[in-house]
Every structure is written in structure tokens, then in C-alpha cells.
Amino acid sequence: MLSDEDFKAVFGMTRSAFANLPLWKQQNLKKEKGLF
């Protein structure tokens, strides 16, 4: 599990902003970052 700081560094957004994205968009971002 990423820390909040690492999460923001990897995804360029906060966890709450990420959580507001549609599920497909979350999955695409995870795949792009190799976290899926």
C-alpha cells in the first residue's frame, strides 16, 4: 500500500480525487503505473 505522499507522487492527485474518478479511469491509471 502506498503512503499518501507516494500516492500523490505516483498519480499526481490525492486519494480523494482519485476515488472520485470513474472506476474504469482508476483501473487505467493503475495499469499505466504498473500497479494492477
Rank of each mutant, 00 (worst) to 15 (best):
L23R: 11
L29D: 01
D4I: 04
D4A: 05
A9I: 14
Q26C: 01
G12V: 00
L23E: 10
F36S: 10
A19P: 00
P22S: 05
A9E: 11
N20I: 09
Q26T: 01
R15V: 06
L29N: 01
M1C: 15
L2H: 06
V10C: 09
E5S: 08
L35Y: 15
E32T: 08
F7Q: 00
N20Y: 06
D4M: 04
T14R: 02
A17G: 03
V10T: 09
F11H: 02
N28S: 14
Q26W: 01
M1I: 13
F18M: 03
K33L: 15
E32S: 10
G12W: 02
L23M: 11
P22R: 02
S16Q: 14
S3R: 05
K8L: 15
S16C: 02
T14G: 05
A19L: 14
F11N: 01
T14V: 03
K25S: 06
N28D: 13
T14D: 10
F7M: 02
L21Q: 02
E5C: 07
K31R: 13
K30L: 15
S3L: 05
L35T: 08
L21H: 00
L29K: 02
K8F: 15
G12F: 02
E32N: 08
P22I: 02
Q26A: 02
A17S: 07
K8N: 10
G34F: 09
E32W: 08
L35W: 15
M1W: 15
G34D: 08
N20W: 05
L2T: 06
N20C: 14
D6S: 08
S3N: 10
K8A: 12
M13H: 02
L23N: 06
F11S: 01
D6N: 08
K33P: 04
Q26K: 04
D4V: 04
V10R: 08
F11R: 00
A17T: 08
F36T: 13
S3D: 10
T14Q: 03
D4H: 04
G34R: 08
L21S: 02
M1P: 13
S3H: 04
Q27I: 15
L35C: 15
D6Q: 13
K30S: 10
K31H: 11
T14P: 05
L35D: 10
F18N: 00
M1G: 12
L2Q: 06
T14W: 03
K31V: 11
F36M: 13
K25R: 11
F7K: 00
M13Y: 08
R15S: 04
R15Y: 07
R15L: 06
G34T: 07
E32L: 11
E32M: 09
N28C: 15
K30F: 15
L21K: 01
D6E: 14
W24I: 06
F18V: 01
L2K: 04
A17Y: 05
L2Y: 08
F7D: 00
K33V: 12
S16L: 13
Q26M: 02
P22W: 03
T14K: 02
F36V: 12
A9G: 07
S3W: 03
L29A: 03
M13S: 01
K33F: 10
A9V: 12
K25Y: 09
L23D: 07
L23T: 08
K30D: 04
F11D: 00
F11Q: 00
A19Y: 15
Q27A: 13
E32P: 03
P22F: 02
D6G: 09
F18R: 00
D4E: 11
V10G: 01
S3Q: 05
S3G: 06
G12R: 03
V10I: 14
G12H: 05
S16V: 12
L2C: 10
L29E: 03
F36A: 12
F36K: 08
Q26E: 00
E32G: 07
P22L: 02
M1A: 11
F7H: 01
R15Q: 06
Q26L: 03
R15G: 02
N20R: 13
M13P: 00
F11K: 00
M13C: 05
L21A: 02
P22Q: 03
F18T: 15
D4W: 05
K31C: 13
K30W: 15
L35G: 09
F18G: 00
V10M: 13
G34P: 05
E32F: 07
E5W: 07
F18A: 00
Q26V: 02
N20E: 14
F7R: 00
A9P: 01
N28I: 14
T14S: 12
T14H: 04
L21G: 00
N20Q: 15
P22A: 04
V10E: 04
L2R: 05
R15T: 03
F18L: 02
K31G: 07
F11I: 03
A19G: 09
K25A: 12
N20M: 14
L35I: 13
K33Y: 10
V10H: 10
F18I: 01
V10P: 00
A17R: 06
K8S: 07
S16H: 11
K30A: 15
L35M: 13
Q27P: 01
W24K: 05
Q26N: 01
K8C: 11
Q26R: 06
S3I: 04
